[in-house]
């Protein structure tokens, strides 16, 4: 049953992708198609990375309200942008080699994620909650630093930081995209190998350990994969905090299964579908260019509030 739903989701994504590529195509069709293909690929990579990462993160943290963004990835990205503009100035920032900047951001966020998860998990799996709280506090701290650094910038430099702080699919470099896609492919391969262990991990750390699962090792591996996915996606287009929450919640609701072998690809497909559908509606039907990330954050935030309120009901 869940397998059939997964195939239906895949069909829906294929349809949305075809619409995105083909809708209103005019001459020079080849050129326009190549531009659209790069944008489509970036939407697919980012949506899939965030969707898959969120399902894994929620399982390890034993909480369906959390997203990897909550452990400070987004704040770190914004902090990096602000720091670079502050150090190099607006002109220096603009002349940075794209690939080097992308690689450094990717590496920086990956290392930060692995360091945070590694240090926290050394104390045992009960510390997932501590990890999340540390991430939240780290995020607040980095946002504070970014805010302070932002006050030191002149208005034109500050607007560069503002632009870089929201996800945008408008100007994705194809080499960066290829690197992000390779990271995602490696991460999804790792996730599929880890899927049966994540099924057991979803029983809770004590029960999982009682049935012989090396929970700490599985949690660390899962969080490394999560770091890789989120780092690749954020370095590519910028932060989208609530997309993962939308994708993971919908994956659980639509697939109605506990099997991560289906949930992870399901959330990846749904994450990609949300972005492709959203971009199609805004770009093709409404003629807008940069509102997608804002709308995704808005709808995701509303869903977050809904889930919190539903959970707190007696």
């Amino acid at each position: 049953m869940a397998e059939r739903r997964l195939f239906a989701l895949l069909g829906l994504l294929a349809l949305l992708s075809a619409l995105f590529l083909g809708w209103g195509l005019r001459e020079p069709a080849g050129f326009i198609l190549s531009l659209r293909a790069v944008k489509l690929a970036s939407l697919l990579v980012v949506g899939a990375a965030i969707g898959a990462a969120t399902v894994m993160f929620q399982t390890v943290a034993a909480n369906r309200l959390l997203t990897p963004g909550i452990v400070g990835f987004d704040a770190l990205f914004v902090f990096l942008q602000t720091g670079l503009v502050l150090l190099l100035g607006g002109a220096g920032f603009a002349t940075l080699p794209d690939l080097a900047k992308f690689g450094a951001e990717l590496l920086c966020m990956l290392l930060a994620g692995v360091a945070l998860f590694g240090v926290m998990l050394r104390r045992g799996a009960e510390d997932v909650l501590r990890l999340v709280l540390t991430g939240v506090i780290l995020g607040v701290f980095l946002r504070g630093l970014s805010g302070f650094a932002g006050r030191l910038l002149d208005p034109s430099e500050y607007s560069i930081v503002q632009q870089a702080s929201f996800a945008t699919f408008g100007a994705v470099d194809s080499t960066q995209l290829a690197i992000a896609a390779a990271v995602l492919a490696a991460a999804l391969t790792g996730a599929s190998l880890l899927a049966p262990s994540l099924d057991a991990a979803a029983l809770g750390s004590t029960t999982a350990r009682a049935i012989g699962l090396p929970f700490d090792r599985i949690a660390l591996l899962a969080l490394v994969i999560v770091s890789a996915c989120v780092a690749a996606s954020t370095a590519l287009v910028g932060p989208i905090t609530f997309l993962g929450l939308l994708a993971a919640s919908l994956a659980h609701a639509v697939l109605r299964t506990w099997r991560h072998a289906l949930l992870i690809p399901g959330a990846a497909i749904i994450g990609a579908s949300i972005l492709v559908a959203g971009q199609f509606v805004f770009e093709r039907l409404l003629g807008q260019q940069s509102t997608l990330a804002v709308i995704v954050e808005c709808v995701g935030g509303l869903l977050f509030l809904f889930l919190v309120l539903r959970k707190s009901r007696p």
Partner: peptide, 15 residues
């Protein structure tokens, strides 16, 4: 886990 089965008090199932 092949020697001892432990059933704990805090059994919860999210899945």
């Amino acid at each position: 886990a092949r020697t001892v089965a432990l059933l704990t008090q805090s059994e919860h199932v999210t899945a």
